[in-house]
Design a protein around this nucleic acid. Structure first.
Length: 219
DNA sequence: CCAGACGTTGTT
DNA sequence: GTCTGG
DNA sequence: CCAGACGTTGTT
DNA sequence: GTCTGG
């Protein structure tokens, strides 16, 4: 899945993604929810840029932008076949930087949130696709979906799906405007030794709250 | 041919 | 049960 | 992803 | 826009 994540900005972002620096204002976020506007890295020409995009991919041909509410994730296993994702896969690949992500473990009637974060790095690079939709004023609306894959050994204890996370070598390959067949191999579960997990407060379940304590281990 | 969908997740 | 809002 | 709503009328 | 189902 991947329906919530965190994003704690730092100067490292510009170095890591070799982006052209802009006036983009980054705010620390501990509970990013579907539908929100968040920074995403994409390539334009030979340069990488940050752009603010809405989480939930609205296909360029959509008549109603609400279709994007259902497009927060794209399954790696079927992304090539899906009308909403096949064209973005070819020409509109992007990276969503994240400090960590949440997955819920179903325990009877309870949903128990767990937080996954990098063991060493500052950020995860989620593999994503985006699209550009025009609203009634011909304004470009950018939106994105996070690609998911089967869980690795550490995530599998909590949940059976996880976001595709790119390693350093994969990041630039994914953004490059190359034949998409050559990057499909990147859509694999991440090395579980490069991440950690712990249970966190159920307060994160409420999308209305966004507190730094959400990413701390629950005692 | 036209009409209608276009998605993932989890749960049953 | 299913949709909407965050 | 989870939480919360899910409806209409008339009156203030 | 493009595919599927009827």
């Amino acid at each position: 899945m991947c329906g919530r994540y965190s994003f704690i900005p730092s100067e490292k972002l510009f170095l890591k993604y070799k982006t052209v620096q802009t006036n983009y204002v980054f705010l620390p976020r501990y509970n990013v929810c579907p539908g929100e506007n968040m920074p995403v890295v994409f390539k334009k020409g030979n340069d990488n840029y940050f752009a603010e995009m809405k989480w939930g991919l609205i296909p360029f041909w959509a008549k109603d932008k609400k279709i994007g509410d259902n497009m927060i994730n794209a399954r790696a296993e079927t992304i090539e076949e899906k009308p909403s994702f096949k064209q973005p896969l070819k020409t509109k690949r992007c990276i969503i930087p994240a400090s960590g992500f949440y997955e819920w473990k179903r325990e009877g009637k309870e949903n128990v949130p767990h937080y996954f974060s990098p063991a060493n790095d500052a950020y995860f690079s989620f593999a994503g696709v985006y699209d550009i939709w025009k609203d009634k004023h011909e304004q470009d609306i950018y939106s994105y979906a996070i690609i998911t894959t089967q869980a690795n050994e550490i995530v599998d204890k909590i949940h059976d799906r996880m976001p595709v996370i790119l390693n350093e070598a994969g990041e630039e390959q994914w953004l490059q405007n190359s034949n998409y067949h050559s990057v499909l191999g990147l859509l694999k579960p991440y090395d579980s030794k490069k991440m950690q997990v712990y249970q966190v407060s159920k307060e994160v379940n409420s999308s209305k709250m966004d507190l730094a304590e959400f990413i701390l281990p629950q005692e």
